[in-house]
Amino acid sequence: MKAVLHIIEYDFRNFFRYKWWLAGLISMNLADLLIMAVVYNKIVNPDLFLGQLKSYFNFFAPGVTVLGLFASAFMIGREVNMEVRREIHHYMLSLPITRLELAVGRLLAGGLRGMMYMTPLLLITFLFLGFPSPSQLLIILGALMLLATGISGLSIAAAVSITSFEKFVTARGLIYYVLFFCSSIFYPSSLIRTLGQDGLIPQPIVVLAELNPLSSGADLIRSFLIGTPIFTLEMIRNLAIFSMIFSTTSTLAYVKIIERK
């Protein structure tokens, strides 16, 4: 157990060595939020697309929060990938730590780093949209931690299976693209469904957007803060399944693959 904490400490140290980079990233997230919100407010008719929503800002703020969580929790993969290429993982493997402790440490560290990075974004969202009740807050944090762990797992699994940095970066771009755009981060699920029914979006994309854990994460925050969409247990279920699948896969892949390289 102590060993898991040591690994988390190691990953947090690495995370904060990029403080300028992180600061840049978070300012970009905030700029996104402002620009998109202002511009979209002018070009979309909220009555038409967003139903009871007052502004695109209110809709987008939870989306950006989840976006930030995703990008930062995914960073662990880049470091794991670099370690494998530079054979630093040999050092990790020689330490008096079990393989399981090592893998769980990396997984949780990735997730917790995401949570930490996301905190200011979430606070800004609360400031503008109103604070949730304590129990709602607990549900939000719990659900987002599931999401963060799943993302961390996904990135670790990708990082160890694809050692070439170039291919890893390409895969990362692809994952980002698919998960960001086939989700309710930028546009409401209801809209995606409607467009799907009208035949304007292919059905697989509609399904993907519904199952996408990023959609569930963003919608969960929205359901508590702006009341739409309605909160359903399905959101939590989606997140839990995603988290379980990728936590398990990444733990197994991490241990199996780095021992071979």
């Binding site: 190691y10 140290r13 690495n14 670099m82 530079r86 054979e87 040999h90 050092y91 020689s94």
Partner: peptide, 14 residues
């Protein structure tokens, strides 16, 4: 055991 690697394995930003 403890091991001193042929190629130093230092944490890469430290």
């Amino acid at each position: 055991i403890g091991i001193c690697f042929q190629e130093p394995k230092l944490l890469w930003v430290s």
